[in-house]
Design a protein around this nucleic acid. Structure first.
Lengths: 143, 143
DNA sequence: AAAGCTTTCCCCACTTTTCCCCACTTTTAA
DNA sequence: TTAAAAGTGGGGAAAAGTGGGGAAAGCTTT
């Protein structure tokens, strides 16, 4: 399971190193458009569950089609090269506003890939509002 | 299974390259008029299931008849040439408003072929309400 | 039935992108 | 302080994508 945060670079060819700690689990992975303008990266196995669920909904409903276009067409299967890097396709970099400096964050069953600036802002916001946010949460520990 | 999106061109002869990743599954395929003004492309095998499903709906409902006319009568079997391209017939290009720049999107059991501009608009609209995604992800993890 | 025209298909050639490999720098660990 | 591992960058070969010429096939017209 993934925790922690790492500061990495995307090079001119769209390549980004996976933190060495996570590589053995991520030889095959899937990157998708996530929430809050970042990318989600799942293990192939984890993602198959999500994809299966979305793909088996009927295409006769517009909501289902939109969801599928976002999550399935928005995804990309990736493999690490010999140096432990993946290639993030142009359309995903654009979506997440990724430049050179990115943050790779572990969120247990997924990694998140953020533009560094966006990450800073988001973190600052969260830190300054932590109490309010916590207050609004449901009881985490009581489950 | 098909995932991801690709930006390709249709040339003056109506030819369009199938993304290399998908070719081995698509030597024989079926293209048909889809929903939201794009084309659907299925493997022959998958198409048989879809066609069966559409054909066996009662024809006493207008909606069913309409769908059948669009998707069954609108279909065309295609094969890839040596360069991995298919020919998209004129009536389908017209239906989907395809010009030179098209998006080929993988949606698990089908590809969608979009005019690039239409795709951009559609995606932007969908991205603006991410609620569906959040909800979908939530439901998956609870299973 | 032949000639003329269009359409389809096969092949080749060029350009762009991707992928593989090596090498250098920085960080971590012994 | 040295060695190993992690991260980064780039060159070159291979693959993918694109465009067009010309033969073959199919129609139409005379």
């Amino acid at each position: 399971m993934f925790v922690g945060q790492y500061s990495h670079n995307i090079d001119s060819k769209g390549r980004m190193a996976i933190p060495a700690k996570f590589r053995h689990e991520l030889k095959k992975a899937v990157v998708t458009k996530g929430l809050d303008n970042c990318l989600f990266l799942y293990t192939k196995k984890e993602w198959d569950k999500i994809a299966e669920d979305i793909a088996t909904r009927t295409f006769t409903k517009l909501n289902n089609r939109s969801l599928a276009r976002q999550m399935l067409a928005g995804a990309m299967e990736v493999e690490t090269d010999k140096q432990g890097r993946i290639i993030i396709p142009e359309y995903q970099r654009k979506f997440a506003g990724l430049n050179k400096n990115v943050i790779v964050a572990g969120l247990y069953n997924r990694l998140e890939i953020w533009d560094e600036e966006k990450w800073e802002k988001n973190i600052k916001y969260t830190e300054s509002n932590a109490n309010d946010i916590a207050e609004a949460l449901e009881n985490v520990s009581e489950k």
